[in-house]
Write a protein that binds this DNA or RNA. Sequence first.
DNA 1: CTGAAAGCGCTTACAG
DNA 2: CTGAAAGCGCTTACAG
Lengths: 327, 327
Amino acid sequence: MPDATIRDVARKANVSVASVSRALNGLENVSDDTRARVAEAVRELGYVPHAGARSLSLARTHAVGVVLPDLHGEFFSEIVRGMDREAGRRGYLLLLSTLHPKHGTSVLGALRGRVDGLIVMAPHLDADELGAALPKALPVVLINTRGISGGHPAIHIGNAAGVSAVMDHLVGLGRRRFVHIAGPKDNIDAQERCEAFCEAARKAGCEFRIVNGDFSEESGEAAVAELLDQGRDFDAIFGSNDNMAIGALQALRAASVAVPEDVAIAGFDDIPLARHVGLTTVRVRIAELGERAIACLIDGLESKQLDYAEENHEPELVVRSTTQRES
Amino acid sequence: MPDATIRDVARKANVSVASVSRALNGLENVSDDTRARVAEAVRELGYVPHAGARSLSLARTHAVGVVLPDLHGEFFSEIVRGMDREAGRRGYLLLLSTLHPKHGTSVLGALRGRVDGLIVMAPHLDADELGAALPKALPVVLINTRGISGGHPAIHIGNAAGVSAVMDHLVGLGRRRFVHIAGPKDNIDAQERCEAFCEAARKAGCEFRIVNGDFSEESGEAAVAELLDQGRDFDAIFGSNDNMAIGALQALRAASVAVPEDVAIAGFDDIPLARHVGLTTVRVRIAELGERAIACLIDGLESKQLDYAEENHEPELVVRSTTQRES
DNA sequence: CTGAAAGCGCTTACAG
DNA sequence: CTGAAAGCGCTTACAG
């Protein structure tokens, strides 16, 4: 037996569907008697409104879409948690979807008519690609997209400032021979961090080299293991994210290199695991970033206008034992 | 300017909306000419179908809802990842929602008409409460619900078998004085693990005591710190989940108790962090659990019938350095 | 306060 | 192969 519809309720309560709708939505112009009969019928039938139909009628879904490049690892776990928290607080549902760099952008279109707005984090897409794939009338908030945001509000992580803080710290500790484990080449955060690293290293007059990773722990571990094979000629490693820095740490431990005495290590993000392994890093307050993105989107939706705005999410340095022994 | 609708496309292509619909859905009975004109109009207008309207018409959303008690921590991160992976593979969208024990069950109703089916993990609810809150006609797959599943397919984690394996391991190592850090009292997994623990400890003729936690790392740490204050009179700790076991580990380290020499520690779940800290635990293969739940639901949806079935997700013991030094 | 009707943007028998 | 029309389950002017 299919679920009851508003017509079933109307029939049972002996009123029109219009009255049922009004009663259900708590409008003023409904007699106490009608209201009671409707309530009774709803109870008896176990009626639950059909959110899809309601949305179509209202042109409002009360859901927001979240499109992330991936769901693997603590970074995304944290950002989703922040988003869920804020969405729940505001009474919105979260429609989650991943946009794998290799799978095309069609999911963006699939979201039209299911959500009132979108959060998009696509560090591998530029504004044009995004613009082409997004329904024109759908409000969007971007997180860390490359280049201009095409008129969409956007939140950026302060990559340059974060890297600069780490590098100051490391240089201040006397480190002079750097390795940077870079993230995916097409990822805007990875690029910005890499650039900032090079600039800082140059400014400080330090030697440096760059090895490639893909943001995974394994890639960090492999990269550093390979470096060590060639003989250790560096005294500091800066990973483009925490995962890779942690991988690097494993590789050093496996090779019995003393951290931080022989080699200092720092990462970026401050995922929960970073605290556990004592990794010096740049704290992004990831969950908060997720909250902000949702808040920004919903504020826009509810004021019927998404003011164009760029927001900076400034990170801060967190010093732990991979660079500085506790005293 | 609002997004174009199918009518706009029809007008521009000079055909009926019916033809546009047919062309868009790749039906056979459309002339090449019509098809081409529609394609052209779609391109010009940047038309994207309204998924909500489509769903209403088809009575099919191609989305599945996921309701979890929380999103905090690696357990949920992993399960969501597995779900996302499988849903993506099958072409479904994921609607994610948390069902906090304290917030009531209204979100379950809110999902009617937005999803074709639901995965519900609500270890604090019983079958009656769930039954009352769920739309009657909505297919549901339960994960680790207490008691009978009210006719819904259900997946259970083999808590008893898992606990039994850990306890055998610990007893086999010569441990005789146990502490169990229990999870939330109203959580079915916590209850099952606690019971299995008591039974195993009794059977082995071991001393044991139970202290309370809430599945958070902090609670595990606090519980053990308190125990240590009273003097250490135990040689093994079994945490109802990994987070609490890891908290316990921190507390022991802080008190300079040797692990595993003086006290062995084991947890449950095998979250990614467990490997990092070398925690002996029960591997649940969490992501796989999420995948299975989605697969089971979608299989049911697509065969138009959800056969009632209970599935057991059997865990396995993973021995690491918190119980046994590597040799 | 209430009901009949139109409409939200689609799909799909039904006729032609 | 094509179009006019009804319908999916709601909401909301419009009349009364």
